[in-house]
Simulated assay, not measured.
Amino acid sequence: MFSGEDIENFVKYVNRSLDEEEDFHFLRFEFLQRLNLTQFQARLVRLKSRIQKEGKASRRELKMLQSTMSAYATAIRDYRCLRLQKSLGISETKRRKLLLQRFFQSESDFNDPFQSHYAFFKDDNKKIDPLRRAFMTSLPARLAYSDEERRQRSREYAEGKYPLRVSQFMDRLLRFTVALAGGVFLIMPMIITMLNPSQMKSLVTASVAVVFFAVVLSFAVRASNAETLIWTATYAAVLVVFVGTSAGASSN
Rank of each mutant, 00 (worst) to 15 (best):
35 L>H: 01
24 F>W: 05
100 L>Y: 08
224 S>D: 03
52 Q>V: 12
219 F>V: 02
116 S>L: 01
209 A>C: 13
187 I>D: 04
220 A>M: 15
246 S>I: 07
60 R>S: 15
103 F>L: 03
163 P>Q: 02
191 I>P: 08
30 E>H: 13
243 V>S: 14
97 K>C: 08
185 F>E: 01
214 A>P: 14
98 L>K: 07
61 E>F: 12
178 V>E: 03
17 S>E: 05
200 M>E: 13
178 V>N: 01
9 N>I: 02
84 L>W: 01
152 Q>R: 10
112 D>Y: 03
71 A>T: 09
223 A>T: 10
149 E>I: 00
40 F>V: 14
147 D>H: 08
238 V>Q: 06
156 E>P: 10
147 D>W: 00
166 V>F: 01
195 L>T: 03
130 P>Y: 04
211 V>K: 15
85 Q>S: 09
243 V>A: 11
137 T>S: 11
209 A>I: 03
212 F>E: 03
137 T>Y: 06
92 E>W: 01
52 Q>M: 15
37 L>G: 04
63 K>T: 00
210 V>T: 06
49 S>Q: 10
212 F>W: 09
98 L>N: 07
147 D>P: 13
27 L>R: 11
90 I>L: 07
141 A>W: 05
159 E>H: 14
172 R>E: 08
65 L>F: 12
234 T>P: 05
237 A>W: 10
232 T>H: 14
16 R>P: 04
142 R>L: 10
241 V>C: 13
141 A>K: 06
95 R>C: 09
119 A>P: 00
80 R>Q: 07
28 R>N: 08
31 F>N: 05
13 Y>V: 02
95 R>P: 06
36 N>C: 08
28 R>E: 09
195 L>N: 05
193 T>P: 07
155 R>W: 12
181 A>I: 05
99 L>H: 03
129 D>S: 10
128 I>W: 00
221 V>I: 14
237 A>D: 06
65 L>T: 00
221 V>H: 11
112 D>W: 03
225 N>R: 15
230 I>D: 01
152 Q>M: 01
70 S>I: 12
242 F>M: 15
96 R>Q: 13
245 T>C: 11
120 F>C: 08
50 R>S: 12
66 Q>W: 13
237 A>N: 08
163 P>K: 01
28 R>Y: 04
251 S>E: 13
184 V>C: 09
2 F>G: 02
142 R>D: 06
129 D>W: 12
69 M>Q: 10
64 M>P: 06
198 S>L: 00
104 F>H: 07
6 D>M: 04
227 E>Q: 14
133 R>Y: 12
25 H>M: 11
